[in-house]
Simulated scan of single mutants.
Amino acid sequence: MKKTVLVIGYGNDLRSDDGIGQRIANEVASWRLPSVESLAVHQLTPDLADSLASVDLAIFIDACLPVHGFDVKVQSLFAAGDIDSNVHTGDPRSLLGLTKAIYGNCPTAWWVTVPGVNFEIGDRFSRTAETGKAIALVKIIQILDKVKNLWFDVGAVA
């Protein structure tokens, strides 16, 4: 069975740093990696559950306010236990929960958050977001390499 990855970068690309998730997803798409699909979307919507149900790994990318420093954060995600009717507001856990409820399964998931400081109307990224983008891309490569090696090792054993 072929292992697949879905990268979803989301945010409002007309609100400066809020669009960094979409920009990163487009960069990943430009790599044209086999078994990796990348989507740049304005917000997480219920229709994405169909795409999530058919992949082994999902990586969500979004901008965030720098609450505890300016680090790019990577955290594992689990499906929400209850289905949030407001899945369109941008919560990947709720979207994973919806995927699990409808399809009976959902992928392993990671959430990459990139700090931003300018969320005003505009299409330019702050230096903070640009630096975060570079770091996030490295972290995504690390996730993909780690998963590829894990899948290769499991396949070699099977």
Score class of each variant (00 low, 15 high):
Thr89Phe: 12
Gly116Gln: 03
Val117Ala: 11
Arg127Val: 10
Ile135Pro: 04
Ala129Leu: 10
Val138Thr: 13
Val87Ser: 11
Gly122Arg: 03
Leu98Thr: 07
Pro107Gln: 05
Val112Lys: 00
Leu95Tyr: 01
Ser85Lys: 13
Arg93Ala: 15
Ile121Asn: 12
Gln142Val: 04
Gly90Gln: 12
Trp110Ser: 04
Phe119Thr: 10
Arg127Thr: 12
Gly116Pro: 03
Thr131Gln: 14
Thr113Gln: 05
Lys139Phe: 03
Gly132Pro: 02
Val112Trp: 00
Asp91Leu: 13
Asp123Thr: 06
Gly122Asn: 08
Ile102Lys: 12
Phe119Lys: 09
Asn118Gln: 02
Ser94Phe: 09
Val112Asp: 02
Leu95Arg: 00
Trp111Met: 09
Leu137Ser: 11
Ile102Arg: 11
Gly81Lys: 05
Arg127Ala: 12
Tyr103Met: 11
Glu130Tyr: 05
Pro92Leu: 00
Lys100Ile: 00
Val117Lys: 12
Ser94Ala: 15
Leu96Glu: 08
Leu137Gln: 14
Trp110Ile: 05
Gln142Phe: 04
Tyr103Asp: 10
Gly104Pro: 12
Asp123Arg: 05
Ile140Met: 03
Leu137Asp: 10
Glu130Gly: 06
Pro92Val: 01
Thr99Ser: 12
Leu98Arg: 04
Gly132Ile: 04
Val114Thr: 02
Lys100Asp: 07
Pro115Gln: 05
Trp110Tyr: 15
Gly81His: 08
Cys106Ile: 08
Ala134Glu: 09
Lys133His: 07
Phe125Tyr: 13
Pro115Lys: 04
Ser94Thr: 11
Asn118His: 01
Ser126Tyr: 01
Asn118Val: 02
Arg127Asp: 12
Ile83Lys: 06
Ala134Gln: 07
Trp110Cys: 03
Glu120Ala: 14
Tyr103Gln: 06
Val117His: 04
Trp111Tyr: 15
Asp82Trp: 06
Ser94Trp: 07
Gly132Trp: 02
Asp84Arg: 11
Val117Asp: 13
Thr113Asn: 01
Thr113Ile: 03
Gly90Ile: 11
Val117Glu: 15
Ile140Gly: 01
Ser126Cys: 00
Gly116Glu: 04
Ala134Phe: 03
Thr131Ala: 14
Pro92Met: 01
Gln142Pro: 02
Asp91Gln: 14
Val114Arg: 02
Thr113Asp: 02
Gly104Val: 10
Gly132Asn: 06
Ala109Asp: 00
Leu95Thr: 01
Arg124Lys: 15
Asn86Gly: 10
Asp82Ala: 13
Val138Gln: 14
Arg93Ile: 06
Ile102Val: 15
Leu95Cys: 02
Ser94Asp: 14
Asn105Leu: 05
Thr128Cys: 10
Lys100Met: 08
Thr131His: 13
Trp110Leu: 07
Thr113Leu: 01
Glu120Asn: 14
Gly122Lys: 05
Ile135Gly: 02
Ala136Leu: 04
Gly132Lys: 04
Gly132His: 02
Asp123Cys: 01
Leu95Glu: 02
Glu130Asn: 13
Gly104Phe: 08
Leu137Pro: 06
Ile135Asp: 14
Tyr103His: 15
Cys106Gly: 10
Val117Trp: 02
Pro115Ala: 07
Phe125Cys: 08
Pro92Glu: 00
Cys106Tyr: 10
Thr131Ile: 13
Thr128Phe: 05
Ser126His: 01
Ala101Gly: 09
Ala109Thr: 00
Gly132Leu: 06
Ala109Gly: 00
Arg93Pro: 03
